[in-house]
Every structure is written in C-alpha cells, then in structure tokens.
C-alpha cells in the first residue's frame, strides 16, 4: 500500500529570496497519527501549503496515497482534507451552507453532502448552530466548523494546522477524543501544534522541522527515549529545610513543602525516593515540571547551537 504522504527533496524559495524549505523529505504511513512540529517560521505551514496546492513549490516531489500532486492533482486533492491555521470560511454564510458547499467542490451530490454535513456537525456539536451565520460563532466553534468542513468528503488524509490554537482546555480535550476516533476509523492524520502535550498524547510518529530542515523524524517513543533527564516537582508532607541536599540528585527547594529534582537517564525514581526517605522526607504527590516532549523539543532545537558553542 502506498504511503499516505511522501515528500522528496521539497524546496520552496519565495520571490523575495527567502528559502522556507531546504530540501525536506518525509514519509507518513497510511493510518498514522503524525506530528509535524517546529518553532514559528520553521516551514510547517509552507509544507502543508505545498501539499494542499496553496503554495507553489520550487522543486521536489510530493505524492498523496501514490498520486503525484502535479500529474494527478485531482486524485491527490480528493484524498486530502485540510484544516488551516486561520479561519478561511465565508463569514457571512450559514454553518450548514459552508459544509455542504465544500462537499459540492469535491463532487458530492447535494443530498449526500447534506447527510454528511449533518453527520459531522452533530459529531462536533454544531448541529444546533447549523443556521447560524458563521461569523457569530465562538472561536472554538469556528475551529470545529473547519474540521467538519474538512471531513465532509471523508478524506483519507486529514491535515490539521494548529487546530486547537486558542481553544480552551475542555474543548481541546474533546477535540483530541474526536480526532482519535477519526484516526481509529482509518484516516491518516498529520498535525502541527504548539501544544506539545497534544502531540505527545495523540501522535505515534513525529518530525521536527527548523529553518526549513527536518532535524528529527522518528517515532514518538524513540524520540522520548532520547530524553537524558527529566525534572520532577515533589510535594512533601512535612516542612523541608532551605538548604536541603539530596545526594546524587540536583535538587532545589521551591518552598517549605515543595522541591524540584532532576533525574537523569541513568538514575531511577526508586533511588530518589530512597534518598529522600533516608532524610525523613515523605512525598505526597509528584509531577513532571514540563511536558516530556517539550523538554525534548527544546533540547533538539538547541542541539546545533550547543554543538556550535562547544566547538
């Protein structure tokens, strides 16, 4: 079976000479839930724009389920549903009309488009708003409307460019659940996001892009295994001294009931708890100081600079 997406040596040079993509190559297998991460201006949206024909590439090959986007563009486009970063629907149209019209662009007869629109608007809790003018929706509803619109032709590949930006936590989690179901039903999903917790929870494979270059492309598990240290925040039952020292562990006292400890890859949490117990400290709760992927992301992005400093 063809890969859901295959990109070979993709380059994009804008008319002002800025090189947004410097020959990236990627392969996303069918059925995957794939994260494309990178700092602002790294080239994520340009990559998505090229896949969706919104950005003209300078060179390279892109194929979607085996269809080259240049020679078989209608077949390739039929496979793709896209949820862009910015709201790009007609602000004066009704919610239902927006979704049904999009179905029409993909050749769905009106009856089928109406059925599909109802299905996805109900799944995304927007059915009651179907006759509302889209500009009157809340930010979260607008995001969900764009997802419903992208799904109306039931694409095999769904691309979401920061779909949960500006969405509250509760809604974000319900959108995660929805996307997991869509993926479980066989739709390949590519996601860009700034919420690394989102990528870690949802995605099985990941690429990190920086300055138009792919600097990591691996499975989420393999990437997280590279994490050399984690920082934990521990709440203590009793008061701790300001000058607390835990042998073998870098420890900082945050306040009289809270400490922060670094645990590297060679150490275990058992060793940490033993050291703390020896000092009569009882832990009531613990958590990661930062999301693990966030730590990895920062270390991967900083790696070239640190290597340069070392040299």
């Amino acid at each position: 079976m063809s890969a859901a997406l295959e990109i070979n040596d993709l380059r994009k040079v804008y008319s002002n000479g800025f090189e947004a993509l410097k020959g990236i190559s990627l392969k996303v297998e069918a059925g995957d839930f794939y994260a494309l991460l990178g700092p602002n201006g790294a080239g994520k949206s340009t990559t998505i724009g090229v896949i969706c024909s919104l950005v003209a590439k300078s060179s390279g090959k892109v194929s979607v389920f085996g269809y080259d986007i240049d020679s078989h563009f209608t077949e390739a486009k039929q496979c793709i549903g896209v949820v862009p970063q910015e709201f790009n629907f007609n602000q004066f149209e009704k919610v239902l009309d927006i979704v049904v019209t999009q179905g029409g662009y993909y050749g769905l007869p009106r009856r089928v488009a109406l059925e599909r629109a109802e299905k996805y608007l109900r799944l995304l809790d927007l059915w009651d708003m179907r006759d509302s003018i889209s500009r009157n929706l809340s930010g979260g509803m607008k995001r969900r409307l764009m997802i419903a619109r992208a799904l109306v032709h039931e694409p095999k590949l769904l691309i979401l460019d920061e779909p949960t930006a500006g969405v509250d936590i509760e809604l974000r989690r319900s959108m995660w659940e929805f996307l997991e179901k869509v993926n479980a039903n066989g739709t390949t999903i590519i996601l860009t996001t700034h919420y690394l917790e989102e990528a870690e929870s949802l995605c099985r494979n990941i690429a990190i892009i920086d300055s138009g270059v792919i600097i990591e492309n691996t499975s989420m598990k393999a990437l997280l295994r590279k994490l050399t240290r984690e920082v934990f925040v521990l709440d203590t039952k009793a008061t701790v001294k300001d000058d607390l020292q835990v042998p073998g562990f870098v420890t900082r006292v945050i306040d009289d009931h809270c400490i922060e400890t670094e645990v590297d890859q060679k150490q275990t949490l058992n060793e940490l708890f033993e050291c703390l117990a020896e000092q009569g400290i009882t832990i009531t709760s613990m958590r990661n100081k930062a999301n693990r992927l966030e730590e990895m992301f920062v270390s991967v992005l900083n790696a070239p600079a640190e290597a340069g400093d070392a040299a």
Binding site: K77, I80, N88, N90, Y105
Partner: peptide, 18 residues
C-alpha cells in the same frame, strides 16, 4: 474579491475542482 479577501478561495483551491 470577497472570496479572496476572506481567504475562502482556499476552499476551492484545495479541492479537486478545476
């Protein structure tokens, strides 16, 4: 122009409509 301005022209450009 409205379609361009609101960027909903992208709805058509990403679709297979010629």
């Amino acid at each position: 122009f409205g379609t361009k301005f609101q960027r909903n022209i992208e709805e058509m450009l990403v679709s297979p409509v010629t």
